[in-house]
Design a protein around this nucleic acid. Structure first.
Lengths: 366, 366
DNA sequence: AACGATGATGCAAACGATTGCATGATGGGA
DNA sequence: TCCCATCATGCAATCGTTTGCATCATCGTT
């Protein structure tokens, strides 16, 4: 068999196409079929539905596949089967000069990836970068049927030109507290977790608090704030005993809050930051301002990112079971993509987060 | 002919197919064509080659596209055009319980993603997890033509059943010092960077050193080690004045080295860790062992991860221009994917890394 | 021996876009 | 007036797989 792509016709007219990828030996399922002496259908089934083909035939086919190095063409498969075996992970990082994936989502993503790829799915990254244009693109990607499922690492539902991602009909799971009231979800119980922080600080004897939160319209901010305040209220402490610092979950806003804290003469004795990044930025600035943690103030973070442990002193924080969340979310998504009907309580899963005691909390100065 | 309920179509034979995605209104290019009153070819060209269609026709087509909400089917496009508009980013994280993406690659990935998606490419994540099976899958993915290009965040060339990724003929760019001698590459000058560390410590007056490196067969380890040792040698300091600690770039190995350091009575006065993660683990343990940084020992890391700045004291480290590397690598890859012929020196790009002075170095104890 | 059930395999029609070539219209130059 | 170049568009083949249905062989029952 001779291959002659050396004799290309005229280069008079520039063709519209771009050059093709290097030619592989065996590229079509039909080649394998011919080699074995069966039809393409049989090869296809041998690969996808082992039980529907004679074991002996199957063995011969697999051997031929191995020998020829044949790999099915995913595009053709996707086109015909209307199934891409890809999942889109949607997130939104701030953009230039920051990290692609926050420390928290990073480990979560790992568990998601491991679980999904074990089930045969690929992972496509869709970062919104807080830009409308990117958001449009991501929504279109899903609308075009490029992916079989979506994993949301976001607290709101992506939209584009009025259309919401939710309308696409593609299975979706969120790993952060709710983008939509009815969305399949795997996350911690935010209120309960924030409550453990409040209880811990109350037990140490604190009575005046700082709260370093997130944007007011952010679902996570609302939950953690509610849980924290409710528990304080139970102890008879009202909103007037809580100084609120604005934040956006990122380290920079933590630093700004830290500076504000230092400048404040009537400062509280304990601060709850609803992300570790903010807590870390906060700690750096208050220390710069001459205050000692935990001698002058107690500080608690949230998430339990790996670095919390390496702060000096180690940061007391709420540890989210990231691997568990990621794995469960991926499993749920796979179930949904396979069309499994699930009861409501199996579509909204809550885990407990645990307070991890580092060294940043202590009783207040007397 | 007998009629009975034993042959209910539903449960007789399970159909091979899975349910299709919800039907969209307008799904085919032909529908748009019919609406406008042109052929499918024209619509296709209007979308991909604006200059080849009458401006007025094009306007009418675009309007119809907008109205119908038509989105081209990527699978069909890929199949026919043999072009997926996807890029695979290959990396290898340790696995369960660790982060998906190391702090260093994280920011790099962001720049890569921003640049690639601006050029119209999607990003597919291929994590090897140091597992042969995953590696096989990744190599096959590329062999199957699922992606148009590969970005390697790895120091060795992935292989599967004897076949190397390099053989696939797909354009590739590496962002870590060389996977293969001839591979397009965007990275810092490792030797030069390691040399700045050596010079800094020498200038402070150190004469006995610790070196916390990586696996001996790791290209980065070799380069950084060579650069460090060569500069010491120029100052008349031989290998006998350098204690070597084994490491693997991760925080755990830094901790183990720190413990070894504490136990050692004849310890050196300055330590160079070739990753920030290791430096951070090291610092935690030596402090635990009662030593102060930088009073009792100087410590320098490598990479300049965001967290280095938030250590106490801030970690002196070599800052890599991550965004620049990521952007350049993505641009190079795009050029290669578009078939641009590039001179050798434009295919291997080196940037300078800069020593960032935190507070972990000082003159040695007298 | 006849019959139906069961199981393995093949046939051929999609899936939705791209693109080489053909066609017809238009316009400019000789 | 004729001819050829240029341009916009259409025709139809093709990319490689999956899958409903048809076919055929085999086997156990009655």
């Amino acid at each position: 068999m001779s291959i002659d792509d050396s004799t290309r016709p005229g280069d008079a007219v520039k063709p519209e196409g771009v050059q093709r990828a290097a030619r592989r030996q065996v590229t079509k399922i039909e080649d394998v079929a011919a080699l074995v002496g069966v039809s393409a259908s049989t090869v296809s089934r041998a690969l996808a539905r082992p039980e529907r083909v004679l074991p002996e035939t199957r063995a011969r086919i697999l051997e031929a596949v191995r020998q020829t190095g044949y790999t099915p063409n995913p595009a053709a498969r996707t086109l015909r089967a209307a199934r891409s075996m890809n999942v889109l992970v949607v997130l939104s990082s701030p953009g230039h000069g920051e990290s692609m994936i926050s420390a928290f989502f990073n480990e979560l993503l790992m568990a998601v990836d491991l679980t999904l790829s074990a089930a045969g799915y690929g992972v496509l990254l869709g970062n919104l970068y807080q830009s409308a244009e990117r958001e449009e693109r991501v929504v279109n990607l899903v609308a075009a049927g490029q992916v079989d499922g979506v994993l949301l690492m976001l607290s709101r539902m992506p939209k584009a030109s009025g259309r919401s991602l939710a309308e696409s009909g593609v299975p979706m799971v969120s790993v952060t507290t709710p983008a939509a009231p009815d969305l399949p979800l795997v996350a911690i119980d935010e209120e309960a977790a924030a409550a453990t922080v409040a209880r811990h600080l109350l037990e140490l004897g604190h009575r005046r608090f700082g709260y370093l939160g997130g944007p007011a319209d952010h679902a996570i901010e609302q939950r953690r704030h509610a849980g924290f305040m409710a528990t304080l209220a139970e102890a008879g402490i009202g909103a007037d005993a809580v100084v609120r610092y604005p934040g956006d979950f990122r380290v920079g806003s933590g630093r700004r809050a830290g500076q504000a804290f230092v400048a404040d003469r009537t400062r509280p004795s304990a601060v709850f930051a609803i992300s570790d990044e903010m807590a870390i930025g906060f700690m750096k600035e208050v220390r710069q301002g001459g205050l000692a943690v935990p001698a002058d103030l107690s500080l608690v973070g949230f998430d339990g990112i790996p670095f919390a442990e390496f702060c000096e002193p180690p940061l007391t924080t709420v540890r989210q079971p990231r691997e568990l969340i990621g794995r469960s979310a991926a499993e749920l998504l796979v179930a949904l993509m396979q069309g499994t009907e699930l009861a409501a309580e199996r579509r909204r899963i809550r885990f407990d987060a645990e307070l991890w005691l580092g060294g940043t909390t202590a009783p207040p100065r007397t």
